[in-house]
């Protein structure tokens, strides 16, 4: 009786773990294959250029918040169909290495971090 109980518990644990890993792998694959919005920030002089590539919610993207470590976030609207958002002069005082985050704000009001990357401004 006790042995069968132990075996049942082990089977349940194994099944749960397998399901967890399977689920995690699906979530991981989905995040790779179908990002909400794929963006990339780059610097050109004092400007930061956010390029918008593709993604499952790209048409719902209403605004982008650019967040440079040590500076206040700056939000810009994303016109429909835009592939580039330029933050003119935003890096004029920025030097050294800082974390840069790009947050998407969607038409339903939800927000999601689209990119975080360490940036070497100089």
């Amino acid at each position: 009786m006790a042995i069968s109980l132990v075996i049942t518990v082990i089977l349940i644990l194994v099944a749960s773990l397998g399901g967890l890993l399977f689920g995690a792998s699906i979530i991981f694959d989905q995040s790779l294959n179908d990002p909400d919005v794929l963006v990339h920030p780059a610097i050109s002089g004092n400007d930061m250029i956010i390029t918008i590539y593709e993604g499952g919610r790209v048409t719902e993207l209403a605004q982008i918040s650019l967040e440079i470590e040590g500076y206040a976030p700056v939000v810009q609207n994303v016109p429909g169909g835009a592939t580039e958002i330029v933050y003119v002069g935003i890096a004029s005082q920025v030097t050294g290495t800082r974390a840069v985050g790009v947050r998407g704000i969607f038409t339903d009001g939800s927000m999601k971090i689209l990119k975080i990357i360490d940036f070497k401004f100089t």
Binding site: H40, P41, A42, I43, S44, T97, V100, I117, D118, F119, K120, F121
Partner: peptide, 9 residues
């Protein structure tokens, strides 16, 4: 690498 760490170019 230095250029990539500036976001690319």
């Amino acid at each position: 690498i230095a250029r990539a760490q500036q976001g690319g170019g």
